[in-house]
């Protein structure tokens, strides 16, 4: 399970990083979203992975999940959602204002847009 978990996190992070380095705003936003998913998964696993444990406490003295990472990852998810929504709106605004969806505001046919 550890191997699967870490591979998933790693692939998500690699895809996110690749997309975040692209030149257009849409792949960048998607890349940041994937990156935040990877980070959330990673954060979730930081208390150690365990199967069959009690959710919070176990009377029989068995293993139980660490509740703190769950609280932390919840916070991180909420913040990540807000940030994604914000960056989507911002990317659309940039498309409208700069007349291009390139992160540097370049038009496709011109090498570089004149700075106003």
């Amino acid at each position: 399970m550890e191997a699967l978990f870490s591979m998933t996190t790693g692939v998500l992070a690699a895809c996110g990083l690749f997309l975040a380095l692209r030149g257009r705003t849409f792949p960048v936003v998607v890349g940041l979203t994937l990156l935040s998913y990877a980070v959330n998964l990673f954060l979730f696993s930081m208390g150690g992975l365990d199967t069959g444990g009690a959710v919070v406490l176990d009377d029989k003295g068995g293993s139980h999940a660490d509740p703190l990472p769950q609280a932390l990852v919840l916070t991180a998810i909420v913040i990540g959602f807000a940030m994604t929504a914000f960056s989507v709106i911002l990317a659309m605004r940039a498309r409208g204002d700069l007349g291009s969806d390139h992160v540097n505001g370049n038009r496709v046919d011109e090498p570089r847009e004149e700075r106003s």
């Binding site: 975040a20 705003t25 960048v28 940041l32 990156l35 935040s36 990877a38 980070v39 959330n40 990673f42 954060l43 696993s45 930081m46 990472p69 932390l72 991180a76 913040i79 940030m83 914000f86 960056s87 911002l90 990317a91 605004r93 940039a94 204002d97 700069l98 992160v103 540097n104 505001g105 700075r115 106003s116």
Partner: peptide
């Protein structure tokens, strides 16, 4: 234009920074 342009860079950079912050905390 100038603000939107530099603003987008600032936001993307800081979002990536937040991801690193969370990994470090984890």
């Amino acid at each position: 234009k100038a603000r939107i342009h530099s603003g987008f860079h600032y936001v993307v950079l800081n979002l990536a920074g937040s991801a690193l912050f969370l990994i470090g905390l984890g």
